[in-house]
Amino acid sequence: MIPTSEQLCAAVPGAVIEIVPSTPAAAQPAMLVDREHLVAVARYLKNEPSCQLDFCSCVTGVDYLAKGFIEIVYHLYSVALKHGPVVLKVRAPRELNQCHVPSLTTVWRGCEFQEREAFDLYGVKFDGHPDLRRILMWNEFTDHPMRKDYVPPADYEWEPTPHDEVLKRTKAAGGIMPPSAAVEVKK
């Protein structure tokens, strides 16, 4: 049995929960939880014997540029009771210095890589995440490419990669030049 928002509010005092509808056909309404009580709500949903949502299937971000927030969406299922999905949502402002939500990796271990991915692509910081690093983009990359206002560079080849540093050092040490650099020297 999946608890209603009133039951959840009673179980987690102070939590603010709003129901967000999905498309009419999909019929997967989501529970929008405030950032402060997200972990408590998640723990309740996982441990409460009547719902036992022990499987956090999918974690992702959505950038609502016009509305000014980024939404993190969690899809929860129960392996023990075979029901679901229960959709949890939490919102954070788009500004990079305020864009953080509590991490649920401590509740469901399976969030670890998926939260890293959301951090990498959306720039959402997950407070309390054990190992918050980029996962798909390379470490030297500075932007968050899934944001709706991301502008890709005109020339992808130009982006600084570790190779540029290596190249600089090779040149400085008088090492073997790559073909393009060797042409420059001849001039």
Partner: peptide, 21 residues
């Protein structure tokens, strides 16, 4: 076109749960 809203669908792929949100 699809009416506004969101949803999650999944199948049992050969590697595991393959879903689209």
């Amino acid at each position: 076109k699809i009416p506004a809203g969101d949803g999650y669908g999944r199948v049992e792929g050969a590697k595991g749960e393959l879903g689209f949100y």
